[in-house]
Design a protein around this nucleic acid. Structure first.
Lengths: 214, 214
DNA sequence: ACTCATATTGAATGATTATTCAATACAAAA
DNA sequence: TTTTGTATTGAATAATCATTCAATATGAGT
């Protein structure tokens, strides 16, 4: 099994190369869905955008279904990483964390029209594709429960007891989903600032003493 | 131009027959989208479910696109009629109207999983099909503005001034969209009762004196 | 019974597209 | 240089569908 350093290096390079094409195809898939819609996304278009041959795209991902799945997984992980970093940031107090969460959910990286278009496309197929559901659902459950725990802390600190942490977090999560969808309809009216302000006002109403919800 | 009574009667019958097939096809389209998804809905399946030939379905609606459009229009009108009746009901006071609106938005007729699946399917294509957008957007604007006016009345009656009627109605509308989407993911958790209670609690928190938000 | 107009059929067509695979490019090892 | 294994191509295949249309059914008027 004597493996030479060269060989390892080669292998790593190989993996990197593979990885580059892999990611190029996923990026191209997301761009294509964002531009044409899930239904009008063909392997030929994706391959062209990724600048590889059509045959290669299929070979690399085994099937179109698998390419779509991988793209959804990528988006889902990207989102997860963004909020996980906030929950794990020990420099933040509960209210500061909530504010960061809101800002993240309506940041240019997460809530831009292209990515929302992709999200909503997959959401709309969730009922028919258990594989989509399983990717989204698990992470959503974690997000929900983390959010509820966080709100519980804020509730305690602010002596708020009329609304339960569950109620507040469910309201927040449904508002985010709804606003994302509305961004698709009318991105001018539902600007990031508008959405963030609306949600902050919601919190401000609940936690009247907390001046940070602008 | 002497038209005999018989002839008129025939003509009406003819129209009715046409109308029956027309509606059978639209119903079948909605059912098929709800069962298979927009992307996997074929004219053949719809025609089979409506018990007419494939060729007829195409002939009658001129194109698949047009059949889908007509189906969206039908759903959209059905929804509009349901809330318009509430806004026009003079027996209701503002708060009573809000409660009826909430109940309507999560009634079995409107917020069932099949219809939501169809809604979300069309929503997800809105960015790519201006024709879908134009059907949805206009009615949504009316609903929004009616809702805002209604909330303004409630605000005045209850001396609530921290949240504007715009803010409350936008919050309500985005919550409804978000909750509808969540019903697709997890209809058990997001039951109609759960959704209605969540929203009523939101209003109860704003209008603390109003006991009718359960 | 016959004619005519309209409604409806269903098989044929043509377009689109995922998938396959034999052929080729390429680069590393000998 | 030659060999060998892997990466990549792109043309061929096969399946799926929307759409068309010639043929047929239906039923009212004469």
């Amino acid at each position: 099994m004597n493996i030479s350093p060269k060989k390892i290096s080669d292998h790593q390079l190989e993996d990197q190369e593979i990885s580059i094409n892999h990611q190029k195809l996923i990026d191209a898939t997301i761009e294509t869905i964002a531009k044409k819609g899930l239904g009008d996304t063909t392997i030929a278009q994706v391959a062209k955008k990724a600048m590889v041959s059509q045959g290669y795209a299929n070979f690399r991902f085994k099937s179109k279904e698998n390419l779509l799945l991988s793209s959804l997984k990528f988006l889902s992980d990207e989102y997860k990483n963004s909020w996980q970093r906030i929950f794990e940031d020990n420099n933040l107090d509960p209210v500061g964390r909530v504010i960061k969460i809101i800002e993240n959910d309506f940041s240019g990286k997460i809530a831009n029209r292209n990515k929302i278009a992709v999200w909503v496309s997959f959401y709309s197929e969730v009922k028919f594709r258990p594989s989509y559901l399983s990717i989204c659902q698990k992470q959503d459950e974690i997000y929900s429960s983390q959010m509820e725990k966080l709100i519980k802390e804020v509730n305690i600190l602010s002596n708020q007891s009329f609304l339960t942490s569950r109620e507040i977090s469910e309201t927040y999560l449904s508002m985010v989903d709804g606003l994302w969808q509305r961004i698709l309809f009318d991105p001018k009216m539902y600007s990031h600032v508008f959405c963030k302000d609306l949600i902050k006002k919601y919190f401000r109403n609940i936690y009247a003493d907390e001046k940070r919800f602008v």
